[in-house]
Design a protein around this nucleic acid. Structure first.
Lengths: 226, 226
DNA sequence: CTTCAATTATCAGAATTTTCATGGGGAAGG
DNA sequence: CCTTCCCCATGAAAATTCTGATAATTGAAG
Protein backbone atom coordinates (compact mmCIF):
# COMPACT_ATOMS: atom_id res chain seq x y z
CA UNK A 1 0.00 0.00 0.00
CA UNK A 2 1.42 3.35 -1.06
CA UNK A 3 0.36 6.63 0.47
CA UNK A 4 0.96 10.07 -1.02
CA UNK A 5 1.48 12.89 1.48
CA UNK A 6 0.88 16.41 0.18
CA UNK A 7 2.14 18.69 2.93
CA UNK A 8 4.43 21.73 2.83
CA UNK A 9 5.57 21.76 6.45
CA UNK A 10 8.66 19.50 6.48
CA UNK A 11 8.26 18.56 10.15
CA UNK A 12 4.69 17.41 9.75
CA UNK A 13 5.46 15.64 6.48
CA UNK A 14 8.34 13.63 7.88
CA UNK A 15 6.41 12.90 11.08
CA UNK A 16 3.68 11.26 9.04
CA UNK A 17 6.07 9.66 6.58
CA UNK A 18 8.17 7.98 9.24
CA UNK A 19 5.18 6.89 11.24
CA UNK A 20 3.63 5.24 8.21
CA UNK A 21 6.83 3.61 7.05
CA UNK A 22 7.20 2.11 10.48
CA UNK A 23 3.84 0.44 9.83
CA UNK A 24 5.12 -0.85 6.48
CA UNK A 25 3.31 1.54 4.21
CA UNK A 26 5.19 2.90 1.22
CA UNK A 27 5.10 6.69 1.09
CA UNK A 28 5.72 9.53 -1.26
CA UNK A 29 5.83 13.21 -0.33
CA UNK A 30 4.92 16.26 -2.38
CA UNK A 31 5.53 19.73 -0.99
CA UNK A 32 3.15 21.80 -3.10
CA UNK A 33 -0.21 21.59 -4.84
CA UNK A 34 0.89 21.15 -8.42
CA UNK A 35 3.46 18.42 -7.87
CA UNK A 36 1.05 16.71 -5.49
CA UNK A 37 -1.70 16.72 -8.05
CA UNK A 38 0.64 15.24 -10.60
CA UNK A 39 1.92 12.58 -8.21
CA UNK A 40 -1.64 11.58 -7.31
CA UNK A 41 -2.31 10.71 -10.93
CA UNK A 42 0.58 8.28 -11.15
CA UNK A 43 -0.49 4.67 -10.86
CA UNK A 44 0.20 2.81 -7.64
CA UNK A 45 -1.02 5.44 -5.19
CA UNK A 46 -3.63 3.96 -2.85
CA UNK A 47 -4.45 6.94 -0.65
CA UNK A 48 -3.69 10.65 -0.44
CA UNK A 49 -3.16 12.66 2.72
CA UNK A 50 -3.74 16.24 1.68
CA UNK A 51 -3.06 19.39 3.64
CA UNK A 52 -5.61 22.10 2.99
CA UNK A 53 -3.13 24.96 3.15
CA UNK A 54 -0.28 24.37 0.74
CA UNK A 55 1.65 26.56 -1.68
CA UNK A 56 1.14 26.44 -5.44
CA UNK A 57 -2.46 25.42 -5.60
CA UNK A 58 -5.24 25.36 -3.00
CA UNK A 59 -5.88 22.01 -1.29
CA UNK A 60 -9.55 22.14 -2.21
CA UNK A 61 -8.67 22.54 -5.88
CA UNK A 62 -6.16 19.71 -5.72
CA UNK A 63 -8.75 17.47 -4.09
CA UNK A 64 -11.38 18.20 -6.74
CA UNK A 65 -8.85 17.55 -9.46
CA UNK A 66 -7.78 14.23 -7.96
CA UNK A 67 -11.36 13.12 -7.47
CA UNK A 68 -12.41 14.00 -11.01
CA UNK A 69 -9.50 12.00 -12.39
CA UNK A 70 -9.95 9.05 -10.05
CA UNK A 71 -13.03 8.99 -7.83
CA UNK A 72 -11.98 5.78 -6.15
CA UNK A 73 -8.75 7.15 -4.71
CA UNK A 74 -9.42 8.00 -1.07
CA UNK A 75 -8.38 11.48 0.10
CA UNK A 76 -7.88 12.34 3.75
CA UNK A 77 -7.88 16.09 4.34
CA UNK A 78 -5.56 17.51 6.91
CA UNK A 79 -5.61 21.00 8.28
CA UNK A 80 -5.14 23.36 11.18
CA UNK A 81 -8.44 25.00 10.46
CA UNK A 82 -10.98 23.21 12.60
CA UNK A 83 -14.22 25.06 12.03
CA UNK A 84 -17.24 23.25 10.71
CA UNK A 85 -17.45 25.44 7.60
CA UNK A 86 -14.01 24.27 6.51
CA UNK A 87 -14.88 20.65 7.05
CA UNK A 88 -18.00 20.93 4.96
CA UNK A 89 -16.03 22.58 2.16
CA UNK A 90 -13.54 19.74 2.34
CA UNK A 91 -16.22 17.09 2.01
CA UNK A 92 -17.89 18.96 -0.82
CA UNK A 93 -14.60 18.87 -2.69
CA UNK A 94 -14.82 15.10 -2.46
CA UNK A 95 -12.59 14.36 0.53
CA UNK A 96 -13.35 11.04 2.16
CA UNK A 97 -12.26 12.02 5.63
CA UNK A 98 -11.03 15.04 7.53
CA UNK A 99 -8.55 15.37 10.38
CA UNK A 100 -7.70 18.46 12.39
CA UNK A 101 -4.15 19.34 13.44
CA UNK A 102 -2.83 18.70 15.96
CA UNK A 103 -3.78 15.05 15.84
CA UNK A 104 -2.58 11.87 17.48
CA UNK A 105 -0.81 9.51 15.15
CA UNK A 106 -2.89 6.45 16.17
CA UNK A 107 -6.03 8.26 15.10
CA UNK A 108 -4.54 9.10 11.71
CA UNK A 109 -3.55 5.47 11.34
CA UNK A 110 -7.02 4.26 12.30
CA UNK A 111 -8.64 6.55 9.74
CA UNK A 112 -6.20 5.46 7.05
CA UNK A 113 -6.93 1.83 7.81
CA UNK A 114 -10.64 2.48 7.59
CA UNK A 115 -10.33 4.19 4.22
CA UNK A 116 -8.06 1.52 2.79
CA UNK A 117 -10.22 -1.29 4.12
CA UNK A 118 -13.22 0.25 2.47
CA UNK A 119 -11.27 0.67 -0.72
CA UNK A 120 -9.99 -2.88 -0.99
CA UNK A 121 -13.37 -4.09 0.13
CA UNK A 122 -15.25 -2.24 -2.56
CA UNK A 123 -13.10 -1.32 -5.53
CA UNK A 124 -10.49 -4.02 -5.02
CA UNK A 125 -7.30 -2.75 -6.56
CA UNK A 126 -4.88 -5.32 -5.24
CA UNK A 127 -1.46 -6.09 -6.59
CA UNK A 128 -2.75 -9.25 -8.18
CA UNK A 129 -5.99 -10.62 -9.56
CA UNK A 130 -7.16 -14.12 -8.83
CA UNK A 131 -9.72 -16.29 -10.56
CA UNK A 132 -9.87 -19.95 -9.61
CA UNK A 133 -6.25 -21.10 -9.42
CA UNK A 134 -5.04 -18.49 -11.88
CA UNK A 135 -3.24 -15.45 -10.53
CA UNK A 136 -2.27 -12.37 -12.50
CA UNK A 137 0.60 -10.43 -10.96
CA UNK A 138 -0.10 -6.81 -11.86
CA UNK A 139 3.35 -5.63 -10.86
CA UNK A 140 5.49 -8.31 -12.47
CA UNK A 141 3.02 -8.57 -15.37
CA UNK A 142 3.03 -12.35 -15.38
CA UNK A 143 0.40 -14.98 -14.83
CA UNK A 144 0.79 -17.88 -12.40
CA UNK A 145 -1.12 -21.12 -12.69
CA UNK A 146 -0.44 -24.52 -11.19
CA UNK A 147 2.77 -23.19 -9.68
CA UNK A 148 4.11 -22.27 -13.09
CA UNK A 149 5.00 -18.72 -14.08
CA UNK A 150 3.57 -17.80 -17.47
CA UNK A 151 5.18 -14.93 -19.33
CA UNK A 152 2.84 -12.62 -21.21
CA UNK A 153 3.30 -10.00 -23.89
CA UNK A 154 1.75 -6.56 -23.45
CA UNK A 155 -1.39 -7.32 -25.43
CA UNK A 156 -1.82 -10.73 -23.89
CA UNK A 157 -1.53 -9.20 -20.44
CA UNK A 158 -3.95 -6.46 -21.26
CA UNK A 159 -6.53 -8.90 -22.60
CA UNK A 160 -6.17 -11.27 -19.65
CA UNK A 161 -6.48 -8.40 -17.18
CA UNK A 162 -9.67 -7.27 -18.90
CA UNK A 163 -11.04 -10.78 -18.76
CA UNK A 164 -10.20 -11.22 -15.10
CA UNK A 165 -11.59 -7.86 -14.02
CA UNK A 166 -14.84 -8.78 -15.76
CA UNK A 167 -15.09 -12.42 -14.81
CA UNK A 168 -18.55 -13.92 -14.92
CA UNK A 169 -19.93 -11.63 -17.60
CA UNK A 170 -20.12 -11.98 -21.32
CA UNK A 171 -17.76 -9.68 -23.16
CA UNK A 172 -18.45 -9.03 -26.82
CA UNK A 173 -15.75 -8.59 -29.42
CA UNK A 174 -16.74 -4.95 -29.60
CA UNK A 175 -16.26 -4.53 -25.85
CA UNK A 176 -12.92 -6.24 -25.99
CA UNK A 177 -11.53 -4.41 -28.98
CA UNK A 178 -12.64 -1.08 -27.56
CA UNK A 179 -11.14 -1.65 -24.13
CA UNK A 180 -8.03 -3.63 -24.97
CA UNK A 181 -7.19 -2.38 -28.46
CA UNK A 182 -8.90 1.00 -28.26
CA UNK A 183 -10.21 0.59 -31.75
CA UNK A 184 -13.71 0.71 -33.15
CA UNK A 185 -14.34 -2.85 -34.07
CA UNK A 186 -14.70 -3.38 -37.77
CA UNK A 187 -15.40 -6.82 -39.09
CA UNK A 188 -12.26 -6.76 -41.17
CA UNK A 189 -10.02 -7.86 -38.31
CA UNK A 190 -9.78 -10.97 -36.21
CA UNK A 191 -7.20 -9.85 -33.67
CA UNK A 192 -9.49 -10.70 -30.82
CA UNK A 193 -9.87 -14.31 -31.90
CA UNK A 194 -6.14 -14.61 -32.51
CA UNK A 195 -5.28 -13.33 -29.05
CA UNK A 196 -7.94 -15.38 -27.32
CA UNK A 197 -6.41 -18.35 -29.06
CA UNK A 198 -2.91 -17.42 -27.86
CA UNK A 199 -4.14 -16.87 -24.31
CA UNK A 200 -5.89 -20.21 -24.30
CA UNK A 201 -2.70 -21.95 -25.26
CA UNK A 202 -0.88 -20.24 -22.43
CA UNK A 203 -3.32 -20.36 -19.54
CA UNK A 204 -5.93 -23.00 -20.41
CA UNK A 205 -4.35 -25.61 -22.65
CA UNK A 206 -2.51 -27.50 -19.93
CA UNK A 207 -4.88 -26.84 -17.05
CA UNK A 208 -8.31 -27.57 -15.64
CA UNK A 209 -10.81 -26.08 -15.30
CA UNK A 210 -10.87 -24.06 -18.49
CA UNK A 211 -11.37 -20.38 -17.80
CA UNK A 212 -12.01 -18.83 -21.21
CA UNK A 213 -15.36 -19.89 -22.63
CA UNK A 214 -16.81 -19.01 -26.01
CA UNK A 215 -20.42 -17.89 -26.22
CA UNK A 216 -21.11 -18.19 -29.90
CA UNK A 217 -22.76 -15.13 -31.33
CA UNK A 218 -22.17 -13.19 -28.10
CA UNK A 219 -18.50 -13.12 -27.23
CA UNK A 220 -16.45 -14.68 -24.44
CA UNK A 221 -16.96 -15.23 -20.73
CA UNK A 222 -14.18 -15.76 -18.21
CA UNK A 223 -14.53 -17.90 -15.11
CA UNK A 224 -14.43 -21.40 -13.67
CA UNK A 225 -18.13 -22.16 -13.74
CA UNK A 226 -19.82 -23.56 -16.82
CA UNK B 1 -32.37 7.19 1.67
CA UNK B 2 -33.24 5.88 5.13
CA UNK B 3 -31.05 6.39 8.17
CA UNK B 4 -31.25 4.45 11.41
CA UNK B 5 -30.36 6.36 14.58
CA UNK B 6 -29.36 4.26 17.59
CA UNK B 7 -29.20 6.70 20.47
CA UNK B 8 -30.62 6.60 23.96
CA UNK B 9 -30.63 10.29 24.83
CA UNK B 10 -33.99 11.55 23.54
CA UNK B 11 -32.80 15.09 23.01
CA UNK B 12 -29.85 14.07 20.85
CA UNK B 13 -31.94 11.54 18.95
CA UNK B 14 -34.65 13.99 18.04
CA UNK B 15 -32.10 16.68 17.23
CA UNK B 16 -30.55 14.39 14.61
CA UNK B 17 -33.86 12.99 13.44
CA UNK B 18 -35.42 16.37 12.80
CA UNK B 19 -32.31 17.75 11.15
CA UNK B 20 -32.13 14.80 8.76
CA UNK B 21 -35.81 14.84 7.94
CA UNK B 22 -35.51 18.50 7.07
CA UNK B 23 -32.96 17.37 4.47
CA UNK B 24 -35.44 14.79 3.17
CA UNK B 25 -33.85 11.70 4.64
CA UNK B 26 -36.17 9.10 6.09
CA UNK B 27 -35.26 8.16 9.65
CA UNK B 28 -35.87 5.50 12.21
CA UNK B 29 -34.85 5.65 15.86
CA UNK B 30 -33.88 2.88 18.26
CA UNK B 31 -33.24 3.66 21.92
CA UNK B 32 -31.16 0.66 22.94
CA UNK B 33 -28.63 -1.76 21.59
CA UNK B 34 -30.77 -4.81 21.02
CA UNK B 35 -33.63 -3.10 19.22
CA UNK B 36 -31.10 -1.08 17.22
CA UNK B 37 -29.28 -4.20 16.12
CA UNK B 38 -32.56 -5.73 15.04
CA UNK B 39 -33.66 -2.61 13.16
CA UNK B 40 -30.34 -2.46 11.31
CA UNK B 41 -30.99 -5.87 9.83
CA UNK B 42 -34.30 -4.84 8.31
CA UNK B 43 -34.06 -4.14 4.61
CA UNK B 44 -34.20 -0.55 3.42
CA UNK B 45 -31.72 0.95 5.87
CA UNK B 46 -28.94 2.80 4.04
CA UNK B 47 -26.86 4.07 6.94
CA UNK B 48 -26.63 3.71 10.72
CA UNK B 49 -25.73 6.40 13.21
CA UNK B 50 -24.67 4.56 16.32
CA UNK B 51 -23.99 5.95 19.78
CA UNK B 52 -21.18 4.16 21.55
CA UNK B 53 -22.77 4.36 24.98
CA UNK B 54 -26.26 2.91 24.93
CA UNK B 55 -28.22 0.66 27.24
CA UNK B 56 -28.86 -3.00 26.55
CA UNK B 57 -25.81 -3.83 24.50
CA UNK B 58 -22.51 -2.06 24.00
CA UNK B 59 -22.18 0.09 20.86
CA UNK B 60 -19.01 -1.71 19.84
CA UNK B 61 -20.82 -5.05 19.99
CA UNK B 62 -23.75 -3.72 18.01
CA UNK B 63 -21.40 -2.36 15.38
CA UNK B 64 -19.58 -5.66 15.00
CA UNK B 65 -22.87 -7.48 14.74
CA UNK B 66 -24.19 -5.13 12.06
CA UNK B 67 -20.98 -5.34 10.06
CA UNK B 68 -20.83 -9.11 10.16
CA UNK B 69 -24.40 -9.31 8.88
CA UNK B 70 -24.00 -6.64 6.23
CA UNK B 71 -20.49 -5.31 5.60
CA UNK B 72 -21.72 -2.80 3.02
CA UNK B 73 -23.98 -0.92 5.42
CA UNK B 74 -22.11 2.21 6.54
CA UNK B 75 -21.93 2.87 10.28
CA UNK B 76 -21.14 6.27 11.75
CA UNK B 77 -20.09 6.07 15.40
CA UNK B 78 -21.16 8.80 17.73
CA UNK B 79 -19.88 9.38 21.24
CA UNK B 80 -18.97 11.76 23.99
CA UNK B 81 -15.70 9.98 24.54
CA UNK B 82 -13.13 11.77 22.46
CA UNK B 83 -9.90 10.05 23.27
CA UNK B 84 -7.87 8.43 20.56
CA UNK B 85 -8.10 5.00 22.14
CA UNK B 86 -11.87 5.03 21.81
CA UNK B 87 -11.71 6.09 18.21
CA UNK B 88 -9.34 3.29 17.35
CA UNK B 89 -11.62 0.79 19.08
CA UNK B 90 -14.54 2.11 17.07
CA UNK B 91 -12.73 1.73 13.78
CA UNK B 92 -11.57 -1.74 14.72
CA UNK B 93 -15.19 -2.72 15.28
CA UNK B 94 -15.81 -1.83 11.65
CA UNK B 95 -17.20 1.68 11.96
CA UNK B 96 -16.80 3.70 8.78
CA UNK B 97 -16.59 7.06 10.51
CA UNK B 98 -16.47 8.52 13.97
CA UNK B 99 -17.87 11.76 15.33
CA UNK B 100 -17.36 13.25 18.78
CA UNK B 101 -20.13 14.93 20.74
CA UNK B 102 -20.78 17.78 20.85
CA UNK B 103 -20.80 18.18 17.09
CA UNK B 104 -22.19 20.67 14.61
CA UNK B 105 -25.03 19.36 12.51
CA UNK B 106 -23.49 20.47 9.18
CA UNK B 107 -20.47 18.31 9.89
CA UNK B 108 -22.64 15.29 10.62
CA UNK B 109 -24.50 15.93 7.40
CA UNK B 110 -21.28 16.24 5.43
CA UNK B 111 -19.99 12.94 6.80
CA UNK B 112 -23.28 11.22 6.05
CA UNK B 113 -23.20 12.49 2.47
CA UNK B 114 -19.66 11.23 2.07
CA UNK B 115 -20.57 7.76 3.30
CA UNK B 116 -23.72 7.51 1.18
CA UNK B 117 -21.99 8.79 -1.92
CA UNK B 118 -19.40 6.10 -1.56
CA UNK B 119 -22.07 3.49 -1.11
CA UNK B 120 -24.13 4.30 -4.19
CA UNK B 121 -20.95 4.67 -6.16
CA UNK B 122 -19.75 1.18 -5.41
CA UNK B 123 -22.82 -1.00 -4.98
CA UNK B 124 -23.84 -1.58 -8.54
CA UNK B 125 -27.20 -3.14 -9.12
CA UNK B 126 -27.13 -6.66 -10.48
CA UNK B 127 -28.33 -6.65 -14.05
CA UNK B 128 -31.05 -9.24 -14.37
CA UNK B 129 -34.67 -9.54 -15.35
CA UNK B 130 -37.17 -11.56 -13.34
CA UNK B 131 -40.61 -12.88 -14.23
CA UNK B 132 -42.21 -15.36 -11.85
CA UNK B 133 -39.46 -17.82 -10.92
CA UNK B 134 -37.55 -17.25 -14.14
CA UNK B 135 -34.46 -15.07 -14.03
CA UNK B 136 -32.50 -13.79 -16.99
CA UNK B 137 -28.92 -12.88 -16.13
CA UNK B 138 -28.00 -10.10 -18.52
CA UNK B 139 -24.30 -10.24 -17.66
CA UNK B 140 -23.76 -13.98 -17.92
CA UNK B 141 -26.42 -14.19 -20.62
CA UNK B 142 -28.08 -17.27 -19.21
CA UNK B 143 -31.54 -18.02 -17.85
CA UNK B 144 -32.13 -19.55 -14.42
CA UNK B 145 -35.28 -21.41 -13.49
CA UNK B 146 -35.92 -23.81 -10.64
CA UNK B 147 -32.30 -23.52 -9.60
CA UNK B 148 -31.13 -24.75 -12.98
CA UNK B 149 -28.93 -22.74 -15.30
CA UNK B 150 -30.26 -22.76 -18.85
CA UNK B 151 -27.85 -21.98 -21.65
CA UNK B 152 -29.17 -19.88 -24.50
CA UNK B 153 -27.94 -19.08 -27.98
CA UNK B 154 -27.76 -15.46 -29.12
CA UNK B 155 -31.14 -15.45 -30.83
CA UNK B 156 -32.83 -17.35 -28.04
CA UNK B 157 -31.46 -14.89 -25.52
CA UNK B 158 -32.52 -11.94 -27.60
CA UNK B 159 -36.05 -13.27 -27.98
CA UNK B 160 -36.40 -14.13 -24.31
CA UNK B 161 -35.11 -10.72 -23.29
CA UNK B 162 -37.69 -9.08 -25.55
CA UNK B 163 -40.44 -11.21 -24.03
CA UNK B 164 -39.39 -10.46 -20.48
CA UNK B 165 -39.05 -6.74 -21.03
CA UNK B 166 -42.57 -6.75 -22.46
CA UNK B 167 -44.25 -9.18 -20.10
CA UNK B 168 -48.03 -8.98 -19.87
CA UNK B 169 -48.61 -7.55 -23.32
CA UNK B 170 -49.39 -9.26 -26.57
CA UNK B 171 -46.53 -9.19 -29.05
CA UNK B 172 -47.32 -9.81 -32.69
CA UNK B 173 -45.04 -11.71 -35.04
CA UNK B 174 -44.41 -8.42 -36.78
CA UNK B 175 -43.29 -6.78 -33.52
CA UNK B 176 -41.07 -9.69 -32.67
CA UNK B 177 -39.41 -10.05 -36.04
CA UNK B 178 -38.79 -6.33 -36.24
CA UNK B 179 -37.26 -6.05 -32.77
CA UNK B 180 -35.43 -9.35 -32.47
CA UNK B 181 -34.56 -10.14 -36.07
CA UNK B 182 -34.53 -6.58 -37.38
CA UNK B 183 -36.31 -7.71 -40.50
CA UNK B 184 -39.57 -6.64 -42.08
CA UNK B 185 -41.85 -9.54 -41.48
CA UNK B 186 -42.84 -11.35 -44.62
CA UNK B 187 -45.24 -14.26 -44.45
CA UNK B 188 -42.76 -16.53 -46.14
CA UNK B 189 -40.83 -17.25 -42.97
CA UNK B 190 -41.69 -18.98 -39.73
CA UNK B 191 -38.54 -18.24 -37.74
CA UNK B 192 -40.58 -16.72 -34.93
CA UNK B 193 -42.62 -19.87 -34.44
CA UNK B 194 -39.51 -21.99 -34.62
CA UNK B 195 -37.72 -19.97 -31.96
CA UNK B 196 -40.74 -19.72 -29.70
CA UNK B 197 -40.87 -23.47 -29.92
CA UNK B 198 -37.20 -23.80 -28.98
CA UNK B 199 -37.60 -21.39 -26.06
CA UNK B 200 -40.61 -23.27 -24.78
CA UNK B 201 -38.62 -26.47 -24.71
CA UNK B 202 -35.89 -24.77 -22.71
CA UNK B 203 -37.76 -22.63 -20.21
CA UNK B 204 -41.34 -23.93 -20.08
CA UNK B 205 -41.32 -27.64 -20.89
CA UNK B 206 -40.12 -28.85 -17.49
CA UNK B 207 -41.62 -26.11 -15.35
CA UNK B 208 -44.84 -24.62 -14.05
CA UNK B 209 -46.40 -22.21 -14.54
CA UNK B 210 -45.99 -21.83 -18.28
CA UNK B 211 -44.76 -18.39 -19.24
CA UNK B 212 -45.09 -18.25 -23.02
CA UNK B 213 -48.72 -18.20 -24.15
CA UNK B 214 -50.11 -18.20 -27.69
CA UNK B 215 -52.87 -15.78 -28.59
CA UNK B 216 -54.17 -17.16 -31.84
CA UNK B 217 -54.42 -14.57 -34.57
CA UNK B 218 -52.59 -12.00 -32.43
CA UNK B 219 -49.18 -13.25 -31.38
CA UNK B 220 -47.70 -14.25 -28.03
CA UNK B 221 -47.93 -13.00 -24.47
CA UNK B 222 -45.36 -13.61 -21.74
CA UNK B 223 -46.15 -13.94 -18.06
CA UNK B 224 -47.41 -16.23 -15.31
CA UNK B 225 -51.09 -15.30 -15.50
CA UNK B 226 -53.20 -16.59 -18.42
C1' DC C 1 -71.20 -33.10 -33.60
C1' DT C 2 -68.43 -32.97 -37.77
C1' DT C 3 -65.94 -30.73 -41.15
C1' DC C 4 -62.91 -27.39 -42.92
C1' DA C 5 -59.82 -23.62 -43.38
C1' DA C 6 -56.64 -20.96 -40.97
C1' DT C 7 -53.26 -20.82 -37.74
C1' DT C 8 -49.66 -22.66 -35.03
C1' DA C 9 -46.24 -26.40 -33.61
C1' DT C 10 -42.69 -29.53 -34.73
C1' DC C 11 -38.80 -31.55 -37.04
C1' DA C 12 -34.86 -32.64 -40.04
C1' DG C 13 -31.34 -31.18 -42.64
C1' DA C 14 -29.47 -27.27 -45.59
C1' DA C 15 -27.45 -22.80 -45.56
C1' DT C 16 -25.13 -19.52 -43.18
C1' DT C 17 -22.55 -17.60 -39.71
C1' DT C 18 -19.18 -17.87 -36.28
C1' DT C 19 -15.08 -19.52 -34.38
C1' DC C 20 -10.54 -21.99 -34.33
C1' DA C 21 -5.99 -22.67 -35.71
C1' DT C 22 -1.99 -21.61 -38.23
C1' DG C 23 1.47 -19.34 -41.18
C1' DG C 24 3.58 -15.30 -42.67
C1' DG C 25 4.68 -10.31 -43.36
C1' DG C 26 5.77 -6.00 -41.39
C1' DA C 27 7.07 -3.01 -37.59
C1' DA C 28 9.59 -2.03 -33.44
C1' DG C 29 13.45 -2.40 -30.55
C1' DG C 30 17.78 -4.15 -29.05
C1' DC D 1 20.86 -7.88 -38.32
C1' DC D 2 18.08 -10.56 -35.53
C1' DT D 3 14.44 -11.33 -32.37
C1' DT D 4 10.03 -10.40 -30.63
C1' DC D 5 5.56 -8.87 -31.06
C1' DC D 6 1.46 -7.63 -33.45
C1' DC D 7 -1.93 -8.17 -36.88
C1' DC D 8 -3.82 -9.94 -41.39
C1' DA D 9 -5.29 -13.72 -44.30
C1' DT D 10 -6.81 -18.20 -45.06
C1' DG D 11 -9.28 -22.52 -44.82
C1' DA D 12 -11.19 -26.01 -41.85
C1' DA D 13 -14.38 -27.06 -38.22
C1' DA D 14 -18.22 -26.28 -35.37
C1' DA D 15 -22.37 -24.29 -33.99
C1' DT D 16 -26.26 -21.62 -34.96
C1' DT D 17 -29.85 -20.06 -37.76
C1' DC D 18 -33.14 -20.67 -41.17
C1' DT D 19 -36.03 -23.11 -44.61
C1' DG D 20 -39.50 -25.96 -46.12
C1' DA D 21 -42.38 -29.73 -45.41
C1' DT D 22 -45.64 -31.93 -42.46
C1' DA D 23 -48.37 -32.57 -38.23
C1' DA D 24 -51.31 -30.72 -34.74
C1' DT D 25 -54.50 -27.46 -32.96
C1' DT D 26 -57.97 -23.96 -32.99
C1' DG D 27 -62.34 -21.65 -34.02
C1' DA D 28 -66.15 -21.20 -36.81
C1' DA D 29 -69.55 -22.81 -39.90
C1' DG D 30 -72.52 -26.30 -41.57
Amino acid sequence: MKILIIEDEPRVASFIKEGLEEKNYKTEVAYDGLSGEKAAKEPGIDLVILDLVIPGKNGIEVCKSIKSANPDLPVLMLTALGTTADKVTGFDAGADDYLVKPFDFPELLARIKSLLKRKTHTTQQPESLKVADLELDLLRKVAIRGGRVIELTAKEFSLLEYFMRNKGRVLSRVDISEKVWEITYDTGTNVVEVYVNILRKKIDRDFEPKLIHTRIGMGYIFGDQQ
